[in-house]
Amino acid sequence: RIYPLMRVTLTTSDGASVTVSRQLTKHSGFIEKAITDMAVDDNAVPLSAVAVDVDDATLKLVIEWLTEHRDDALPYPEKTDEERRADDIPAWDQAFVQKWDTKEDQQQTLYAVITAADKLDIKGLLDMTCKTLANKINGKTVEEMREILQLECDFTEEELAEIRKENAWCEN
């Protein structure tokens, strides 16, 4: 049982400390495992600090998302074969991600949150960010994809022509 008032202190990779409710951290497989590994009394207040390999700015975004999703059911549903939808992102999550669009490093922020979600083992956040990126790519031209993904073309003209020739089968 997790008591809403129980709190845990997280220390970030850049030396900051953030204290959050266990109601939020229960969504992080990494933090929950760390607490379990400490073998401390669940009733101890405060719990020992847990070090997370995430910087302070990104952790704040993760905590903002966790706060909104604190009541989500756990465990997070296992993915099935049928799950390939990307158009079912909740409105709050869409707005949460769109806020970054004003930032110059919007894509870097998304990548940082994805990496943090993976490190902290927050399946819901990883899933949402995956859908977000898939939506950005879907239906775009090759040039648009390169721009979104911030990648340079490293093919020769001959190689590109060869791939286009193969792809042409499917573009009749």
């Binding site: 939808r85 775009k140 994809m145 340079e152 093919f155 791939i163 792809n167 499917c170």
Partner: peptide, 23 residues
């Protein structure tokens, strides 16, 4: 794990275009 999940959420025609992005 993220990249593999991402590639399950794009369409097959998107995969054709992604082939052309870079090596």
């Amino acid at each position: 794990v993220f990249l593999r999940d991402l590639m399950k959420r794009v369409t097959l025609v998107d995969r054709l275009r992604l082939r052309l992005v870079c090596r």
